[in-house]
Design a protein around this nucleic acid. Structure first.
Lengths: 192, 192
DNA sequence: CTGGAATGTCAACAACCGTTGGCATACGGT
DNA sequence: ACCGTATGCCAACGGTTGTTGACATTCCAG
C-alpha cells in the first residue's frame, strides 16, 4: 500500500475542506442531480475545475461528502429497558445539527451508489450494534431493519418532507412517542 | 367555469394514458430529474413534443402522474383494537403492486412540488381518517404524523432503499411487527 | 365532399451540465 | 537565486435536457 505516514499537510487542505462543506450543504438542500458542481464551487469560492482535480468526479465528491458515521454509543452498558429511549434521543441529537443525513437520504432516493452506501451503513453500523443487544442473534438483522424503518421514517418526515406535525414537534415529545417502538423492535416480540 | 359536461372522449385518450403509464414507470424507477421526457416518450412510443402538448411541461406531467389516492378503507366500522393491523396490511397490499408510491417518494425527496403534494396527502387523506378514530381530536394531527413516519419509513426502506431485511421480509411478518406500533400511535399513549 | 381541427413527426434552439487542457502564479526545498 | 511542483483561473468541448415551431397526416362535422 502507499505509505500510511503522517502525509505532511498539503497547502490546499483549506480549499478541500471548503469544497466538502459546500458540497454537503448543496447535496443536503438539493439532492444529487440538482446540486451542480458549478454551484458547489461557487459556494466554496473556487473554480469548478478544482473540484475535479481534488475529487476526480462528481461521484467521487459525493462519496467523500457522504462519509458518514452514526456515532452509535456503546449499547451494552445501559439498562436494557432504556435502549429505545437512548437510541431515539441519540439520533435526534445527532441529526438536528448535521445535515449530512438529510443529504444522504435525499440522494439515496435516486442515486444507486448512495442507496448502496445507505444499505451498508444500516447493515454494518446499525446491524452490529443491534446484534449486540438483541435477545436472539438469528433475528438481529430483522430487528435492525425494523429499527431502520422507524428511524429513517422519522428522519424522512422531519428533515426531508417536513411534515408539519413531525417537523414542528418538540424532540422530547418525539422521543416519548417513538422510544417504545424502538424498544419493542430491539427486545420485544411482534404480538405483544 | 368551463362546462363540467361529460366532455366527449377525445381520440387521443389512448396516447395520453400511454404517456401517463410510461411517466409513472420512469418516475418510479429514476426519480424526477433522471426521468427524462425523451425516455418517457420513447417508452410510450410517441414523440417527446406530444408530452409537452398534452401536459404542458415536465412539472405538469408529473403532477398528473402523481395523482394519488391512498384508498383508505372506512376505519369507523372495524374493531378499534384492530386498526393498526388493518392499516399496515392495507398499505402493503396497496403498494406491492402500484409503483406510484415509490415514484412519489423518490421524487418528493428532491422536488419541492412533490414534497408539497406528499404533505397534502398526509394532511388530507391520512389526517382526516386518523381524526375519525383518534380518542382525542386535539392530538389527531400528531398521531397522523407519527403514523406517517412509520408507514413512510416502511415504504422507504422496502421499496426505495431496498434494505434486505425489510425488502425480503414476508408481508405478513411485517404486519405482525409494525401493526402494534401503528395501533399505539392511533389510540395509545407515549409512555405505555 | 370539403375544410378546419385534432393528432403526430421532425428538426432545431438555447441553456445547462460534467469534464478537460492550457496557462498564469506562488510556494518551498535545494 | 533557482526550478520543479502545487495551486488556481479561464475558456472551451461534447453531450443532454426541456421546450418550441413548422410541417405532414388523419379524423370528423357540415
Amino acid at each position: 500500500m502507499t505509505e500510511a505516514a503522517p502525509t505532511r499537510p498539503r497547502r490546499s487542505d483549506a480549499t478541500r475542506a471548503a469544497i466538502l462543506r459546500a458540497a454537503r450543504e448543496r447535496f443536503a438542500a438539493d439532492g444529487y442531480e440538482r446540486a451542480t458542481i458549478r454551484a458547489i464551487a461557487a459556494e466554496a469560492r473556487i473554480d469548478p475545475s478544482m473540484v475535479m482535480r481534488y475529487y476526480g468526479s462528481k461521484e467521487g465528491l459525493f462519496a467523500a461528502a457522504a462519509e458518514f458515521d452514526l456515532r452509535l454509543p456503546e449499547l451494552t452498558d445501559v439498562p436494557p429497558e432504556r435502549l429505545g429511549e437512548l437510541l431515539v434521543r441519540h439520533f435526534l441529537d445527532r441529526w438536528e445539527n448535521d445535515e449530512t443525513m438529510a443529504a444522504l437520504l435525499r440522494t439515496a432516493a435516486t442515486n444507486p451508489a448512495a442507496a448502496e452506501r445507505m444499505r451498508g451503513i444500516c447493515a454494518d453500523q446499525l446491524g452490529t450494534a443491534v446484534a449486540r443487544v438483541a435477545p436472539d442473534p438469528a433475528q438481529a438483522p430483522r430487528r435492525a431493519g425494523l429499527v431502520a424503518s422507524q428511524i429513517l421514517g422519522l428522519a424522512l418526515t422531519r428533515y426531508v418532507l417536513r411534515l408539519p406535525p413531525v417537523a414542528d414537534a418538540d424532540p422530547a415529545e418525539l422521543v416519548a412517542w417513538v422510544a417504545p417502538t424502538i424498544q419493542r423492535y430491539l427486545r420485544g416480540t411482534p404480538a405483544a
